[in-house]
Simulated assay, not measured.
Amino acid sequence: MLKRTVSTLLVIFALFLTSCANTPTSGLVPFADSKDGYRFLYPNGWTETKGNSAVDVLFHDIIEPSENVSVAITKLQTVKTLEEIGDAEAIALRVQERVVAPAGSGRQAKLLNVTQRAVSDRNYYTFEYAVERAQGEPRHDLVTLTTNRGNLYTLSISSSEKRWEKVKELFSRVAKSFTIES
């Protein structure tokens, strides 16, 4: 009887430890848009809100409402693929100039990191920026983008600079989770 009880407790304890493991999806919730064909993970406890018309979907943290993740889909205008712009750093600088800190926006951005990954013959670029704003506190942004059928898909996740160290690993997992279905 004692052996059975101890064995049962060990199994329960092992299951508990397994559920507490830090996996790539722990602390994250899946989101999929079947109409537009993209998916990503977002932090548990965040809520979907209405954004402006340029944003397809927007989630924000309930406790820290300035932390948010959004996806925007736009038509490619001057190029058919991102690779026509150049290498990953050239793409990052174009995104910086046109999206993160365009002229007249009151923002200045510094490109901190550039990564590129390929999934099923599709390139995904993730750029990290430190963003200074004319009004308001400094921000930290991760922007992941890719193209599909003449559209540019952009996932942006943002935090205040003071909270960045606490959320950077979680936000990096969100940025890496962004994928497009062919």
Rank of each mutant, 00 (worst) to 15 (best):
G106E: 00
E83V: 10
H60W: 08
G37W: 02
Q116I: 13
K162R: 13
V100S: 01
K35V: 04
H140Q: 15
S172V: 08
T146N: 02
S156G: 07
I91Q: 08
V55L: 14
G106V: 00
R4G: 04
L142E: 02
R122V: 14
A21D: 08
E137S: 10
A175W: 05
N151G: 04
E67Q: 15
S7G: 09
F31M: 02
I157S: 07
L111H: 03
T47W: 03
A109G: 05
R4F: 06
S120W: 10
G45C: 07
T47H: 05
K75E: 09
I85E: 03
P30Y: 04
A109L: 08
V100L: 00
L112M: 09
N52L: 15
V57M: 02
N113V: 15
A101G: 01
V119E: 12
Y129A: 00
Q116F: 06
E132R: 06
P43W: 11
Q108G: 12
N52A: 15
L28G: 12
T81R: 04
T5K: 14
E84T: 02
G136L: 06
G150D: 01
C20K: 14
R98K: 13
T144I: 01
L9W: 06
V95Y: 08
S172W: 11
S7T: 12
V71T: 05
I157P: 08
I12H: 00
N22L: 13
V11F: 06
A103T: 14
T78W: 14
A72L: 11
E97I: 11
T8L: 15
R107A: 15
T126V: 10
V119I: 15
V29N: 09
S159R: 02
C20S: 15
T144K: 00
V131N: 00
P43K: 08
E97F: 08
N22D: 10
A101R: 02
Q77K: 15
T78C: 10
D33A: 07
P24E: 10
S19G: 06
K3S: 12
D141S: 09
E169C: 06
L15V: 13
G45W: 06
L112N: 11
T25A: 12
R117E: 15
T18Y: 12
P138G: 00
S19W: 06
P43L: 08
S66D: 14
A109S: 07
R149A: 04
E161W: 09
R163N: 11
E67R: 14
E161S: 14
A88G: 11
T147K: 00
F40P: 05
S159I: 04
T49K: 10
